[in-house]
């Protein structure tokens, strides 16, 4: 049995087939990239997995449990975290508070304990803070800890969003275009972090990416998508040179 699996996954918007009978499976600890031209349905697959959209048909499995009908908030509780193509951070909160929201799935205190700020709440807060600090260190975010998001440059926001996803201590992470809008240096950092996530933290990575050099540097396997359909699947070099994929990118 595979670690994560999408079976005949489809999503239709009226007549538009954004995702059309997509099948794929992932092994634990793998880095799988989804590539494809604009509008291919890549982000739609992510939104289906995080249950923001209901699939028109098909099923999703994670760790042998069907998650097709779970509510969105329990996806994070199961250990799937994500980032967004158009950064979705909590704009008016500090970096620290954004990351602490990432700890939400590990919070157990009741309303009354919080209103009275009981010792147990205080103790938990310190544990969460400690975990958050580990992620801050991992991603070199120390200078930005107390800064409010709305005043941060784009590149830093991108990293904060990744950090927030890591704070949930995910087993599977979904990255929607992690390098878009980053400069060469930042993209290099990103590629190292993605590899470290796999090797040091043991996280399985599903990623949508347009930057082919980043894709070939970090991916174990690649899926090419066009008009919601899988064109090719396999080794990065293999998929990139697949005639259908080349044709899709050239717009033929």
């Amino acid at each position: 049995m595979s670690y994560f699996r999408a079976e005949n996954l489809s999503l239709h918007f009226g007549g538009l087939k954004a995702v059309d009978s997509v099948n794929f499976a992932m092994e634990k600890g793998e880095i799988l990239s989804i590539i494809g031209p604009n509008g291919a349905g890549k982000s739609s697959i992510f939104n289906l997995i995080s249950r923001l959209y209901d699939p028109t048909s098909g099923r999703l499995f994670f760790e042998d449990q069907e998650i097709t009908h779970e509510p969105p908030y329990s996806i994070a509780k199961l250990g799937i975290a994500r980032t967004f193509q158009n950064i979705e951070l909590f704009e008016n909160a500090s970096v620290l508070n954004n990351l602490l929201v990432g700890r939400h799935r590990h919070c157990t205190s009741s309303l009354w304990q919080e209103i009275l700020y009981m010792p147990s709440v205080r103790r938990d807060e310190k544990i969460h803070r400690h975990k958050v600090e580990q992620v801050i260190e991992f991603l070199d975010l120390e200078p930005y800890r107390d800064r409010v998001i709305s005043g941060l440059p784009y590149g830093v926001r991108k990293v904060v969003e990744l950090a927030r996803a890591l704070c949930t201590e995910p087993k599977l992470i979904l990255l929607d275009e992690p390098s878009s809008g980053l400069n060469v240096e930042e993209t290099t950092d990103m590629s190292f972090w993605i590899r470290d996530m796999k090797s040091e933290l043991g996280i399985t990575v599903l990623m949508v990416e347009h930057d082919m050099s980043l894709v070939s540097r970090v991916s174990d396997r690649v899926i090419a998508l066009n008009y919601g359909k899988v064109l090719a699947m396999g080794q990065p070099a293999e998929v990139q040179s697949h005639p259908d994929v080349v044709a899709a990118y050239l717009g033929a």
Binding site: Y73, I75, A76, A81, L89, V101, H104, T168
Partner: peptide, 9 residues
């Protein structure tokens, strides 16, 4: 959207 995907009901 982000709140949901962080596990907030």
């Amino acid at each position: 959207t982000a709140a949901k995907s962080m596990g907030i009901n």
